[in-house]
Every structure is written in C-alpha cells, then in structure tokens.
Design a protein around this nucleic acid. Structure first.
Lengths: 332, 332
DNA sequence: AAATCTTATAAAAACGTTTACGATTTTCCA
DNA sequence: TGGAAAATCGTAAACGTTTTTATAAGATTT
C-alpha cells in the first residue's frame, strides 16, 4: 500500500479527476455508474485524499491546536482529554504543544501554529502579558484562552475562579483555630496566582489574623517545587498551610509524609484538587476542588463555536471552584 | 496582521519569488542586498510560510503522530511529555490522538494520520491484533510501537517488560507469609496483560501456592475499574493482592482506604508505579516500578532514527521494570 | 424536428510553496 | 579589453487537491 493520488483513481475508474473529487465530497450529483466505479477504484488502491493538498486548496485544516504549559500535569491532561472528546466529535483532530512553562517555547509554538496550521487555537498561556500573544495572532484566527483571562476582552476565555472557594477555605482554617497559616503560591506572573493570593490575603485580613513575613512562599508548580516551600513554612511554626494548585498540593502531602507529620493533627492542609484525587478523599484535608472536566468541555465547545461563527461577540466563561472542609464527604 | 504569501513579500522586496524562498531556506546563494531586502519585507508584513503549502510541495510535514489509549492516564501523559521533549528538539511537532481504549477509534485515527499527515507515527495500540494495523499502514511510513511488541518484527518497538519484576514480587509476597494472593489483571486482549498474568501464575506455581478459582480478576484500567475487583478478591479472603498497572493500583489503594483496611497490616498490596508516585513512597506497599521516562525518551529517539533512515534494521528496545519490597526505600 | 433545459462529465485554473532550468550579471585573469 | 568562470537571479513547472467554466449527452418542451 503506497501512495496514490486522484489521477490514479480517475484513470482506474475511467472517469475524470473532477468526478472523483465530487463523489468523495458529495459536492454535486454523480451518476450511480460513475460513483460505483470510483468507489471500487478507491477501495482497490487503498486511496485516501492527501490532507495537506486538500488543506492548502480549501484553507480548512480540520486541526485545532492546544498550547499547554505542562502536559504531564494531570490538571491539563484532564482538560486535554475533554477537549479532544468534544472536538473529535466534529471531525477535528487535536495538536498539542507543550511549553514546559517556558515563555520562549510558548512564543515559538504560537508562531508555528499560526502560519496556517490550525483552524483554531486553544492557549493556556504562561505569558506574563497577553498583549504579547495578541501581537502574534493573525486577525481572523479563532482563539480561546484557557485558564487565563484576556483583560482586553479580545479573545474568548474559559477560566475557573477559585477566589471564593479559597477565601472561604482560609476563613474556615481560622474558624477552626489556626492563626499561623502559611501559603504556597504559584508562579508570580500568572493571573491565577495573583487572584488566589489575593483571596488568601483578604481572608487573613478580614479575620484580623496577622500576616507575618515569610508566610507566603512561591513555588513554580513543577514537580517537587513546593516541597521546599513547605520546609520554610513549617520552620515558621505554621499550623496550617494553604497550597494554591493541584500539583503543588501533592508535593505538600509528600513533605508531610516524609517528615512524619500527620495531616489533620500535626498540620492542617488546604489543598487544591484538580481531579479525582484519591489523597484528598481519604486524608483529612481541606480542599478546593476545581471543575476541571467542565473546564475542558466548555473550552472545546467554545473553540468550535468560535470557528463556526467568527464574528460572534466575545464570550467569557467563568467557572467556580468549590470548597470542602476536612471532614466533609468529598463527592466530586 | 492578516495572511500574506511569498508573492507579496517578493513584490515588496522587489525580487523574484524564488529569491524569497531561497533566502528563507538558505538553499542557494543570495546577495546580501537582496537578502536584507527580503528579510525586512518579511518582517514588515509579518509573513511566515504556509506550512501546508510547503508540506505539500516537499512531502515533509514536520509532524509526528502519537496514538495513545488514554491521555489523562499519567503513565501515558509522562511518555508523551518525554517524546515531545525529544522530537521538538529536532523541529517536529507532536499530534496526539486519544483512542480511549476503543479499537474502533484507534482505527479511525490511524486511517486519518496515514493519509499524508505525519512524517512518522508512534502507536500505543489497544488492538488485539497488530496485523490489523499493518493492513492500514502504508509501506514507507516510519512507525514505532510503544508499550506493545510486534510479533512479526516488522515495526520498531519500545516496550517495558515487567515479567521479572512481577514474578519476583509475587514470590516475595509468598516468602513474607502470604498464601492467598489475588491478582487484578488488565484488559485480556493486551500483550502486556498476558505477560504479567503469566508472571503471576508462574510465580504461584513455582512456590507451590494453590491458585484458587476467582483469584484472578480482570479490570479495564480505566478509572475506578479495579475497585470492584478488589471487592471480589477481599471476599475470597485474600491477604495480599497484586495489581497489574498504575491506574488500577490507585483504585486498589482507594478501595483499601474506603473500607478501613490498613495497608501492610490488614492487606498487602503489590502495586505498579508508573511515575513519581507519592503513595507508594509513603505507604508500605510492594512496588513494581516502571522506567516510564526512559520509555518516552527512547520512543522519541527511535521514531527520529526511523525517519532518518527508513531502511535500518528493525529495532526492539526492551526496558525492564524493577521490584521494591514494602520496606525498601523507594528511590525512583 | 428544433429548441430548450437538465444532468453528467471533462478541462483547466487556483491554492502557496519548492526547485529545475536557463539567463543575466559580475568577477577575474590573460 | 575580451572572454571564461562564478555568482546571482527569474521563469515556470510541479505537488494533489477543489472548484469554476465549458462541453456533451440526454430528456423535455415547443
């Protein structure tokens, strides 16, 4: 089975190349006789149309790109899965580019994808400034921002706000008797980091709990990075620690285990759970749970909608995380 | 910033379209004068070459496809990440198709990808018979099988054998006093399932431990499927249970927690750990650890090598899992 | 039987590149 | 200064589709 083209099919079927195209695409009436001849010829040669040639001619690529910061982070893996679900129903395939949280890599990937490769683009950007993105994106290209808002309201976005849930969680820690509450933040440049940190700070303030120097530690959400933050915070005699994303929550758990701290007794943990997380179900942790599957689903739907109708008004989808206290049953 | 083509660049620069192409690709000498004119024109228009047109003309797509059974399974997510690492160094981008363990979806995806979309293809197949794959794959297409051998030795493969490790693990369970050892197997059609089951059976036999009816339960490695298997096995008064992949190991752990079983006392678990798994480090479990990062790395290298030299002899890369007993330090 | 309309087909242009081929200019040396 | 060699460049063909335009055949109406 090597590569044949339409000409080969046409010759074998004894019809013109145009007829072959039209029978394949049902794009104008073809006599039964010709149609069957073409179909058997296609079958016989194992022919399938060249995707690149078709893409070039029609401008339609049937590809949607997704730029993610970290593909092996289960948070994004789950989003990706849902997106793929949604768009593959409509005949699109998904091309994934991994930036590894590296802005330079992200720019490189965007540059590549926009040069006529995709029909639409999902971006979970790690860029400090969305403006940098805007400069690279061609005017007509459908784009949906995932997990990241666009202040200029130029692109659709699907984000989840954890402000309320985290605020509530920190207040609950105070209510349960904690005064020394540490916080492990994500990368400073991300909007989610700022939002969540704001929730923590506001909750502390509203509860009139002093926020000591060093109570806020910055991790980078890559594997193991929060481990050392935990060390710092425990060194400051924190009795509870809030951790601001799923990946780092695992690190925090690991730190506790490794240092013989019993969670719920020696230290309380307010964690993020991005998915079906076994840990948070069976250990007495406070949890902010993110509707990550919905996030993926809605992101997929949104890019399809945008491709369908490029001139629809910009849409911002906002989901909310939910807070569960340490003894709540965690049904999510 | 809308779409320009070479003709636009050529006109603006006052040179021919060929000169533009050649300056872009460094494919023949161009005078400094022309070169700089072209470069500024490109910059001015924000031009970048159309990937599809180029792909059609040259036949080179710079895309490698990866067909995976379950993208949100951390085992595969990790492999994917490593593969992307390796191939993006060489200028390739990765297109990922998720089959959700569904053979029909896999076939659909393969059909799509082989029609001139990719320069090479990685497949972690869930098909019962690799022969079905072979029938669809064009002759010249570079293909590497991941996590799955090809009995006909027609395609390169990168697989990890856990026979030894699992065999060793089961024997160790016996040595530590267990007689009633249950087994949670994966999907029957997979070669890895057969291999691992073989290791368990052989170990039991070699230790002269009777293998009772119902000691082997089949899960499907999707979320939660091993949960019910655990129920069955505990109902048969097993004192130890071996679980044959990473995803299902998490289920088993969850089952134990949910039912108030303390691991290492009420029941012993022989688990698979596909990655940096916090659980297995801090609970007294027996563990088979898979070199999953190496697997991804080698798979990426192999597809590049195959693209580079299509006529090189077929290569089978075989990695081995490692066994750790429940009180060993788990440094992996 | 001529004229018209419908249907089926073929021929050819176009998409945006790369590249083979040929042409022109420049450089260099006798 | 003449001419050969080297350097530079432009024209046009090709890649495999889709789609427009033109044509031929068959069916229907006048």
């Amino acid at each position: 089975m090597s590569k044949y083209n339409m000409r080969d099919v046409a010759k074998l079927a004894g019809v013109s190349i145009a007829t072959v195209s039209h029978t394949i695409n049902n794009t104008r009436s073809v006599s039964e006789r010709s149609k069957s001849k073409v179909l058997t010829a296609i079958d016989q040669l194992g022919y399938s149309p060249d995707v690149f040639a078709r893409g070039m001619r029609t401008g339609k690529k049937n590809i949607i790109g997704f730029i993610v910061p970290d593909i092996s982070n289960k948070y994004f893996a789950t989003i990706i899965e849902r997106v793929e679900d949604v768009i593959s129903d409509k005949g699109y395939i998904l091309t994934i580019l991994n930036t590894k949280e590296d802005p330079a890599r992200e720019i490189e990937h965007v540059r590549y994808l926009v040069s006529g490769v995709v029909d639409g683009l999902l971006i979970a950007s790690t860029l400090e400034d969305i403006g940098d993105l805007r400069a690279m994106l061609p005017d007509g290209l459908p784009v949906v921002l995932v997990d990241r808002k666009d202040e200029s309201a130029r692109y659709d976005s699907v984000v989840v706000s954890n402000y309320q849930a985290l605020y509530q969680g920190v207040r609950r820690l105070v209510k349960d008797g904690h005064r020394r509450i540490g916080y492990v933040a994500g990368m400073p440049r991300l909007s989610t980091t700022k939002e969540r940190l704001g929730a923590y700070v506001q909750a502390m303030k509203d509860c009139s709990v002093p926020l000591e120097e060093g109570f806020v530690q910055y991790g980078n959400s890559m594997q193991e990075s929060a481990y050392s933050c935990m060390g710092e915070l425990m060194g400051k005699n924190c009795t509870a620690i809030a951790v601001s994303n799923g990946q780092m929550s695992l690190d925090a758990f690991e730190y506790a285990c490794a240092n013989g701290l019993e969670i719920g007794r020696d230290v309380d943990l307010l964690c993020f759970s991005d998915f079906d997380n076994t840990l948070v179900k069976y250990f007495p942790m406070y949890v902010v749970s993110q509707p990550v599957k919905d996030l993926g689903y809605l992101a997929g739907k949104q890019i399809l909608a945008r491709i369908e109708n490029e001139s629809a008004p910009v849409r911002e989808v906002l989901l909310c995380g939910a807070f569960f206290s340490k003894n709540d049953p965690k049904e999510f």
